[in-house]
Amino acid sequence: MAKIKPQALLLQSKKKKGPSGIGLPTIITCNVIVILIVISLYCTYKHWQGLWYRSYKRSNQLETEFNNSEKDLESLGETKKYDLPNYVIMNTSKGIVSFELLKDSAPGIVDQFLDLCQKEYFKGVPFHHVIKNFVIQGGGGLNRMGDAEDWTLKRKSDGHLASSEKHEAFMLGTCNVKQESNEFQFLITTSPIPDLDDKLFVFGRIINGEEVIQEIEEVDTDEHYRPKSTVSIVNIILKHEL
């Protein structure tokens, strides 16, 4: 193999090209790509951040609306309760009896009773049970001729005739039994009757006219405590104030 002379090597080295450097266009292109990637990532982040913020804001808004609606319902309930008439003037064939309604103790029963009063449900309705030193029963629905009589017979057979302050006299109540919306049976106590605490919902008390109730209590009755002469409700007037 022939040897290359030093002069020839020098000439060959001059002919070889050095390594080519990275051009400016390449650098610019790479920078643009990096910038686009960063912008894309930033836009994606802002997009999801916006979705989360809107979802969070909507959730808070719904919670606020729900809380406000609850307050509105409570306020409406309170307004309705205090807008209802406070007093019932019952005009009977024996005279006038005034009741104060106990709205807080039995609001649902008071609502039903007032609704029926406004519909004149009790107009002309008789007192169909009169049991001395116990209750006077009126209204309609359920077993009209049975409830008070059964309670009285049980009370006498058990010997529970002693008075008690647990259940006062001259209170207005109704049976602790589900009644139809268009029916209502009421009782007026004429003496303390603790035996009926679990059978009555008390929703009113007499504030004037006890003597009328006592007069009704004195009417003659048959063996089933039914008045021999009719005693009935002429009409009922509702009032906010007396």
Results as ranks from 00 to 15, higher is better:
residue 22 I to M: 03
residue 22 I to D: 00
residue 22 I to Y: 00
residue 22 I to S: 02
residue 24 L to F: 02
residue 24 L to Y: 01
residue 24 L to A: 01
residue 24 L to K: 06
residue 25 P to V: 01
residue 26 T to L: 00
residue 26 T to D: 00
residue 27 I to R: 06
residue 28 I to Y: 03
residue 29 T to C: 00
residue 29 T to L: 03
residue 30 C to Y: 03
residue 30 C to A: 08
residue 30 C to P: 00
residue 30 C to W: 05
residue 31 N to I: 04
residue 31 N to A: 08
residue 31 N to Y: 04
residue 31 N to C: 10
residue 31 N to M: 07
residue 31 N to R: 06
residue 31 N to Q: 08
residue 32 V to P: 03
residue 32 V to M: 06
residue 33 I to L: 07
residue 33 I to K: 11
residue 33 I to T: 05
residue 34 V to N: 06
residue 34 V to Q: 07
residue 34 V to T: 11
residue 35 I to M: 06
residue 35 I to V: 10
residue 35 I to G: 03
residue 35 I to E: 05
residue 37 I to R: 06
residue 37 I to G: 04
residue 37 I to C: 13
residue 37 I to M: 12
residue 37 I to N: 05
residue 37 I to W: 05
residue 37 I to A: 11
residue 37 I to S: 09
residue 38 V to A: 13
residue 39 I to K: 13
residue 39 I to M: 14
residue 39 I to N: 12
residue 39 I to L: 15
residue 39 I to A: 15
residue 40 S to G: 15
residue 40 S to K: 14
residue 41 L to F: 10
residue 41 L to Q: 11
residue 41 L to T: 08
residue 41 L to G: 14
residue 42 Y to D: 10
residue 43 C to L: 13
residue 43 C to Q: 11
residue 43 C to F: 12
residue 43 C to P: 07
residue 43 C to D: 01
residue 43 C to W: 07
residue 44 T to H: 10
residue 44 T to P: 00
residue 44 T to Y: 13
residue 44 T to W: 10
residue 45 Y to L: 12
residue 45 Y to S: 13
residue 45 Y to W: 11
residue 46 K to H: 13
residue 46 K to P: 11
residue 46 K to Q: 15
residue 47 H to Q: 14
residue 47 H to Y: 15
residue 47 H to E: 15
residue 47 H to F: 15
residue 48 W to D: 12
residue 48 W to A: 08
residue 48 W to P: 08
residue 48 W to K: 12
residue 49 Q to F: 12
residue 49 Q to I: 10
residue 49 Q to G: 14
residue 49 Q to V: 11
residue 50 G to F: 14
residue 51 L to Y: 14
residue 53 Y to G: 04
residue 54 R to S: 09
residue 54 R to D: 02
residue 54 R to F: 07
residue 55 S to D: 11
residue 55 S to F: 08
residue 56 Y to D: 07
residue 56 Y to K: 12
residue 56 Y to A: 09
residue 56 Y to Q: 10
residue 56 Y to R: 13
residue 58 R to S: 11
residue 59 S to K: 15
residue 59 S to C: 10
residue 59 S to A: 14
residue 60 N to P: 00
residue 60 N to F: 05
residue 60 N to G: 12
residue 61 Q to V: 05
residue 63 E to N: 12
residue 63 E to K: 15
residue 63 E to S: 15
residue 63 E to Q: 15
residue 64 T to K: 14
residue 64 T to R: 14
residue 64 T to D: 07
residue 65 E to H: 09
residue 65 E to G: 00
residue 65 E to A: 07
residue 66 F to S: 10
residue 66 F to E: 06
residue 66 F to P: 01
residue 67 N to W: 00
residue 67 N to G: 00
residue 68 N to M: 00
residue 68 N to S: 02
residue 69 S to E: 08
residue 70 E to P: 03
residue 70 E to F: 03
residue 70 E to C: 04
residue 70 E to H: 06
residue 71 K to W: 01
residue 71 K to R: 06
residue 71 K to H: 00
residue 71 K to E: 04
residue 72 D to C: 00
residue 72 D to Q: 02
residue 72 D to F: 02
residue 73 L to C: 02
residue 73 L to K: 05
residue 74 E to A: 02
residue 74 E to Q: 09
